[in-house]
Amino acid sequence: MNIAYLVNRYPTVSHTFVRREILGIEAAGHRVHRFSIRAAPDDLPDPADRAEREKTAVILTKAVPLLLGAAGLVLRRPGGAWAAWRASKAMTPPTARGFVARVAYLAEACSLSSAMHRADVRHLHAHFGTNPAAVARMAHLISGIPYSFTVHGPDEFDEPRQLDLAGKIADAKFTVAISDYGRSQLCRWVDTAHWPRIVVVRCGVDLAAIDAAQADAEPGFDFCCIARLAPQKGLPILLDALTLLGERGVRPRVALVGDGPLRDELERGIAARGLGGQVALLGSKGGAAVAAQLRASRAMVLPSFAEGLPVVIMESLAVGTPVVTTAVAGIPELVDDGCGWVVPAGSVEALADAMAEALSADADRRAAMGAEGRRRVAHDHDAGRNAALLLKYMEAA
């Protein structure tokens, strides 16, 4: 079966789970055509992502050919194009900016439809219920090719009506949530008749690849935090917790791996709190370097305000490193006191207390927590097994 995958920007360092899923489907003997609305970044640190970039077709390139191609398809398929245009109105705001977005979505959907027909694609799957699901839905209405999409959160849960999640779910053959919590949030916005077509397929990791990864860690750090430097990750709370620990005479060192829009603000916050000797912003790293940093840490800390279910938690537990994190979204489905410390989101004191406990935990306790975490990941978050489950839904569709 020829399958198409659509992501807003692919590959990127934060979308390794998509790569694992695609490779799992291809390992089962199917062909996957990768489509990205926008071009991938040039500075991909992971060789596997650089290889994926070479296999991925970018939809949003030159505007004039894109619009001319869309106009031709609209003339050939006016009924489908009109249905897609009507659907786009519910997925964008009734403003001038929303009108521009609708035109862009239609052009992208036409380009994707043409490419899928040339490749004899039988099913289209999109990751994220935002722009990719909008374009996938419109491409389905134009081409007749069935589609599905995976919702991760938290963005989709913040604006379900503006994104017309209900309409996307109604038109899809099935919709994927990555946790039971995520499924419950999707069920909130649709008629109960659609609930059976909302399924849970968890994100996964490749344990063998993680075990085989070889890289050197930056030495001398007690904790690592692997996160996009974005507001939803709650990283200023981590700085406040380190300040509070310092007032108690405890000064752990934290390696912060990742990049994003809050980098400058975090640098200022580190300087203002006098944490320059404790927190290092290491930037984005490839998968092997991330695994090495996790192994070298007493615990991985992630003080998120909002999430889906972070893959980095799975990666940390896969290498046997317990986690300090927050009780939001799907995280408690994987993490409890058996493999980490779960604290209320936004609580500086609770985060500091948990980090202090992680520092004081002896090697036997941390090893036991890490072993339990790895067992859970192997049971519920194996990339190959979960890709096979998703494939079953695609084949049924």
Rank of each mutant, 00 (worst) to 15 (best):
L207E: 13
D46Q: 06
G69H: 03
A193W: 06
G340H: 05
P236K: 08
A271S: 14
S284W: 00
G260I: 06
N2E: 15
V100W: 15
G338N: 13
R53A: 15
A212N: 09
I3Q: 10
V151Q: 00
V301S: 07
A306Y: 06
I210S: 03
A356M: 07
P310V: 04
A327V: 10
D158N: 08
G373Y: 03
D364Q: 13
D46G: 07
S179C: 09
S114W: 07
M300S: 15
N386S: 11
A4N: 08
A345Q: 08
T325P: 05
R375V: 01
V377N: 04
S148P: 05
G24D: 03
F149G: 00
S360W: 11
P45E: 03
G287P: 02
P154R: 04
R202T: 12
Q293S: 13
D191Q: 11
G346Y: 11
A71Q: 10
L44D: 05
H30I: 08
A90P: 01
K173P: 00
T130L: 12
R9A: 10
R161W: 02
R86W: 05
A291L: 13
G204K: 01
R118N: 14
A4K: 05
T150G: 04
A371G: 08
L275W: 13
L390Y: 08
N131P: 00
A217M: 11
G79C: 02
A4H: 02
G338E: 15
A352H: 08
D336G: 06
N386T: 10
C224T: 15
A272I: 01
S284N: 10
A217G: 10
A134F: 00
R374K: 14
A126R: 03
D336V: 04
S360C: 13
I37E: 00
L294M: 15
G144N: 01
A387V: 10
A352F: 08
L73W: 11
V312R: 00
A383Y: 01
Q162F: 07
A352G: 10
R77P: 03
A177I: 12
A28W: 02
L245A: 05
G308Q: 12
R376A: 14
I226T: 09
Y393W: 15
L6E: 04
P310C: 04
M394H: 07
R20Y: 12
F17E: 07
A388D: 08
A345V: 06
S304P: 07
D42F: 04
T150N: 04
L275C: 13
M1N: 11
F17K: 10
L244Q: 15
R366V: 01
R374P: 06
A356G: 14
P322K: 12
E357G: 08
W82K: 12
Y105K: 02
A255D: 00
G153S: 13
S284R: 09
E54N: 09
A296W: 06
P11C: 04
L163A: 06
P303Y: 02
T192V: 14
P303D: 00
Y105E: 05
A371T: 13
Y393P: 00
A354M: 12
L66F: 09
C110T: 05
R295P: 08
Q232S: 04
G320V: 13
S36A: 15
E156V: 13
L266P: 11
A227H: 05
A166E: 13
P78E: 14
A318I: 03
R228I: 02
V319E: 04
